[in-house]
Structure formats: C-alpha cells, structure tokens
Design a protein around this nucleic acid. Sequence first.
DNA 1: TTGTACGCGTTATCAC
DNA 2: GTGATAACGCGTACAA
Lengths: 347, 347
Amino acid sequence: MPPVAGRPASATLRDVARLAEVHPGTVSRALNPETRRLVNEDTARRVIEAAESLGYRPNPIARGLKTNRSYTVGVLVPDLTNPLFPPIVRGIQDRLEQAGYTPLIANTDNDRERERNDFEAMRARQVDGVITATATLDHGVLDEMTGTGLPIVLVNRRLEDGGFSSAAADDADGERLAVLHLAELGHTRIAHLGGPQELSTGRHRYEGFVAGMNEAGLAIDPALVHFGNAFTGPEGERLCEALLASGAAVTGLAAGNDLMALGCYDALERRGLRCPDDISVVGFNDMPFSDRFDPPLTTVAIPHYDIWAAAAELLLERMLQPDEPARAIVLPPYLVVRKSSRALGDA
Amino acid sequence: MPPVAGRPASATLRDVARLAEVHPGTVSRALNPETRRLVNEDTARRVIEAAESLGYRPNPIARGLKTNRSYTVGVLVPDLTNPLFPPIVRGIQDRLEQAGYTPLIANTDNDRERERNDFEAMRARQVDGVITATATLDHGVLDEMTGTGLPIVLVNRRLEDGGFSSAAADDADGERLAVLHLAELGHTRIAHLGGPQELSTGRHRYEGFVAGMNEAGLAIDPALVHFGNAFTGPEGERLCEALLASGAAVTGLAAGNDLMALGCYDALERRGLRCPDDISVVGFNDMPFSDRFDPPLTTVAIPHYDIWAAAAELLLERMLQPDEPARAIVLPPYLVVRKSSRALGDA
DNA sequence: TTGTACGCGTTATCAC
DNA sequence: GTGATAACGCGTACAA
C-alpha cells in the first residue's frame, strides 16, 4: 500500500441489503426511481429506511463503471477571471445540477495546448459531454472533439459547418445596435476596434458594424477599422493608441468588447482626451461592474445567464438523444446606454 | 437499456494486453510508473507502444473503484460572480492539476442548504478532499465535515478550535493598515461599516479597526461602528445610509470589503456627498476592477493567488499525510492607495 | 518476470 | 417480486 489515505469507509449497497434483509440487487432496484416499480412497496420502504439509517449514498463511481456514464460534464472556459464567465458558469451549473450532472470546470487560458490537455483530461474523467466557450478553438481541436463522438455544445460561437449545437447571442445585431446608437447621437466618424477575426464573435461583430454603418448611411473608413489579437484590455489600448497616433478624425468608438473599451479609456486618458466629451465609446457584453467604470460604460448587453442555461439544455438534449440534429440557439442582445456616449458636440 | 447514450467505447487495459500479447495484469504494471520496475524493460516498451497506438487512457473511474480515491477535490465557493473568487479558483486549479487532481467547483450561494447539498454531492463523488471558503459555514456543517474524516482546508477563515488547516490573509492587520492610513490623512471621525461578526473575517477586521484606532490614539465612537449581515454592496449601502441619516459626524469610512465600499459610494451619492471630497472611503480585498471605479478605490490588497495556492498545498499535504497536525498559513496584506481617500480638508 | 484470480460497488440479465 | 450471478475496468496479492 502506498502511504496515502483512502476515504473513510461508507455504507455500501450490501450493507443496506444486510440490514433490510434482502438481496443487494433488490436494494439497487428499490433505491433507483427508474426501477422502483419492479419491487414490492413494503420491501421498498424497508430498504429505503435501512438506507437512510445507514446514511447510504450510492457510489457514482461504481455506477459509472457499470453504466459507462459519469454524470459529469466538462465546461471549458477561456478565462474565469474575465467577469463575463462566472455568471455563465453559474447558469450551466444550476441547470446541470438539477439534472443530476456535475460540471467539471477548466480554464483554458486561451492557450491551445492547455485546451487540448484539459479536453483530454475531461475525456479521461469520462465526462458525458462538453460545453466549450474557448476562443482559440481551431478546427483542429474541434475535429478531434468530433472524432470522439462526445456530445459537444458551443457557447458564444457558432460553426457554420460542423454538426455542433450552439448557444450564442446575435453578435452582429448587437454591434449594429451599438453603431446605430452612435449614429443617432450624430456621430459620423465611427471607428471599430474589434477582436480577432478568426473567432466567430469577432467576425460577426464586425459584420454588424458594417451593417449598422450602411443602415445609417455612413461611409466606412478603412483607416478607422482595426482588429486585435485578443479581446483584452491591453489589445484595446494598443489599437486605440495606434488609431489616435494616426491622427485620424474620430468621434465614436465601437470596441470589440468591454475589456477592450476599458483599454480605450486608458489610451484616451494618456492622450489627454476625455470620454465622452471628446470621444464616445461603446463596449460589448455589459460585463459586471461596467456600470461602475469611469465613465459608466454604454454597452451591448447579452443575456449571459440565458445563453448558458440554453447551452446546458442543448447538452442535455444531445446526451439523451445523440441522433437528433444539432440546434443553434440565438438570443437577442440589447443596448444599455450609460455615460460613455453622448451626442456629438454636446460637451 | 434506458434511452441514453453511453460514451464511445475506448481502448481498455485488455485491448492493450491483446495487442502487446501479454496479460492485462502486466499491462497495468507496465503503465503504472510506481510498478514499472517490476516488469521487463522490453515488455514494458512493447506495452507502452501498444497503449499509445490504441490511444489508451486508463479509466479513472475503474481505478477509483479499486483504490478508493478519485483524484478529485471539491472546492466550495460562496459566489463565483464575486470577482474575488475567480483568481482564487485559478490558483487552486493550477496547483492541484499539476499534482494530478481535478477540482470540482461548486457555488454555495452563501446558502446553508445548498452548502450542505454541495458538500454531500462531493462526498458522493468520492472527492479526496475539500477546500472551502463558504462564509455561512457554521459549526454544524463543519462538524459534519469533520465527522467524515475527509481532509479539509479552510480558506479566508480560521477556526481556533477545530483541527482544520487554513490559509488566510491577516485580516486584522489589513484593517489596521486601513485605519492608520485614514488617521495619517488627518481623519479622526472614522467609521467602520463591517461584515457579519459570526465570520472570522468580519470579526478580525473589526479587531484590526480597534487596534488601528488605538494605535493612532483615536477614540472609537460606538455610533460610528456598524455591522452588516453580509459582505455585499446592498448591505454596505444600507449601513452607510443609516449612518448618514443618524447625522453623525464622519469623514473617514473603513468598509468591510470592496463591495460594501461600493455600496457606500451609492449611499453617499444619494445624499449628495462626494467621495473623497466629503468622505474618504477605504475598502478591503483590492478586487479586480476596483482601480476602475469612480473614484478608484483605496483598499487593502491581499495576496489572493498565493492564498489559494497555499490552500491547495495544504490540502495536498493533508491528503498525503492525514496524521500530521493541521497548519494555519497567514499571509500579509498591504495597502493600495487610490483616489477614494484624501487628506482631511484637502478638497 | 509474468500470469492468475479476486474484489472494488453497482447494475443488468437471468432464473425462480 | 426477488434472488443469484456476471460483468464493468482496473489494481494487486499470490502463485508460478
């Protein structure tokens, strides 16, 4: 024996059987709601009482060995410290727990290698399904995932081809709302400092930007459109810095997300510009505390909790009926106007 | 068979054995680093090759059934959406994963019932240990936990009696720093709007407040000391509101934590008072984005990541050597001065 | 050095 | 309606 401690022994099916004076098989049937009807009511009651008096808890490990299911699902998140994700994890957890599943959460750190590792670790833990929101996910990893035959649900990103179920906000429509908001305020020189275009999120928001500009009858100046390598504050700062340095005339800024918008705040401040007096900024996500920033951020809100509840729902669906076709759920975003945007010339 | 899908069949020990033309037992030995020395080098190599070619992954479920260990640890967190916790979860995860453990994370929502449920669910999943930071944890639940014999580590709270290991910041010293900072700025009418006194966190911070006041040679006015029922924004707002309504003269405010400080901002604003012009506010925790608030919050920072890394370390310790005495690790906090505090009369 | 055999706790499939 | 038995995948005494 290695010098490691096991867990304290706890009551097993057999212990209950002994106490109730029935066969272990009967105990199994009596305790499982699915099969309880197969057993005499009195016997069942006796078994249940015995189980309770012993504080019996079925061992999911043993059960999993037999049923080939772990009642565990993996949740891949790029970065838990991004305030965007915790509410999300909550949504998933709430729904899954109530269906008897336990989520296994992993930070991929937007690192491909870690992503692959985490996925493998989850497979090894016999997860029954995976929900993933990792950003760097390329087709390589996804193909690998598909190959495993595991039910998988994508969150916040959609794949046109693959047979993945997905739950996401309508990013394009959200960005469109942001642009129209700026246009209504009289802005015409509107920039888009977006996220990576390899990500559906980044691409759709850019498409929404284009759509909004067209709808408002505004021309898109290529000099005002730039894409970052990540949806982070530093990237937003870098992009904004470059934009300002270029001397381009800008009065409105549609950032890829709230973190990038925050980065823009920093760049503006460094240049002695003020938001919204000199430049209006609109974010995306309505992340927690965005109402607390200085100035409070005008942003596009998306129903995070709902998205993840939907993702959990989709996963349950696919785990129960793997042969049904994949579904894509798209939820509507909405604009939250705060103090980082104001009418042009309204200083 | 119920209408549920199992996981796709994957290679088992036996498959590897067949391919390598040895007995399954030999495969087990060859693949386990601990026992590899018992097997012929050539055979081992053949086995390993076979395993790789089949993409074999040992089934932790089966392994756990045998070894009575799951290589899984539970992490109980009060509220993942409090930005305080995610970095923390990261710290734990990083350390545990590198030791081969997978964390099982649960939100207790500061709800006793949920807390108990989550703990039970973890026990059922055969976790090898538990790290808990839940606030409402009373002795009842803790006793129950002790009764199970599971290795348990407390985070951010210490229990004088129980034989629990714990990792926490020196809350008292932190609050002392906050008070001394205000005193140095010339404030003499300093209030403490603290958290629940049933929690060691709340109590220690109050003690630190008292210590700091004494050290600064200031009198403590009971009318300026109030405790909330929770470490939340609304509670901070309620307390501050009441304090202001009482007409007490105050110029400095030491809040129970950053969230409560934020609540104070709201109460001040509603009364037409300005921070720091009229009242200086100091928070606790230096939670993410506290530098982004309006005004940026002066607060006591604690080494979150370190605390949780330490917690992970302690848990590993206790899992490997359950008979060693429990240890309490206390880490030093430090002050982060921003714009929510200023010298008295310096408006 | 390797094979054998059993058991971990549970469920499924038979009999009875 | 219930009992007996095998099997899930792996680890490990014990025998060879």
